[in-house]
């Protein structure tokens, strides 16, 4: 089921878990709003990670923690520091892409 969510005065569509259902609706303001909801203030390092995730999504590469670690953008320890509460889950949500279905 999709829900409507207000970002400023603009409506976007999200699924039951709060992930965007239409990546075209994503912009920096969406990212900042979603990050704030889980008490994350986006730094340049966060943005670099989000950009990497979005590139992987556009290239249809499945995401998992190992790929993040070998990305050259961030190491796993840092990734957990940037997004402490379930990093892959929260970072993909902020990046406006689907939740990864990987078990690792």
């Amino acid at each position: 089921m999709t829900h409507t969510k207000l970002i400023g005065e603009r409506a976007i569509s999200v699924n039951d878990e709060g992930y965007l259902t239409d990546y075209a609706q994503w912009d920096a303001q969406v990212a900042e709003t979603l990050a704030k909801e889980i008490n994350i203030e986006l730094t340049p390092k966060h943005w670099a990670v989000l950009k990497f995730l979005q590139e992987q999504y556009k290239n249809e590469v499945a995401l998992n923690i190992r790929r993040i670690g070998s990305s050259g953008v961030v190491d796993i320890k840092e990734f957990y520091q940037l997004f402490p509460q379930g990093p892959l889950k929260t970072s993909t949500k902020i990046a406006g892409i689907p939740k990864p279905a990987s078990c690792i």
């Binding site: 923690i65 796993i76 320890k77 690792i104």
Partner: peptide, 17 residues
């Protein structure tokens, strides 16, 4: 399917806290 060898997996677990 991208499951790492034991030593690398231990490194990932440690880095993950």
């Amino acid at each position: 399917i991208d499951i790492p060898p034991v030593h690398e997996f231990l490194d990932i677990l440690k880095a993950s806290g």
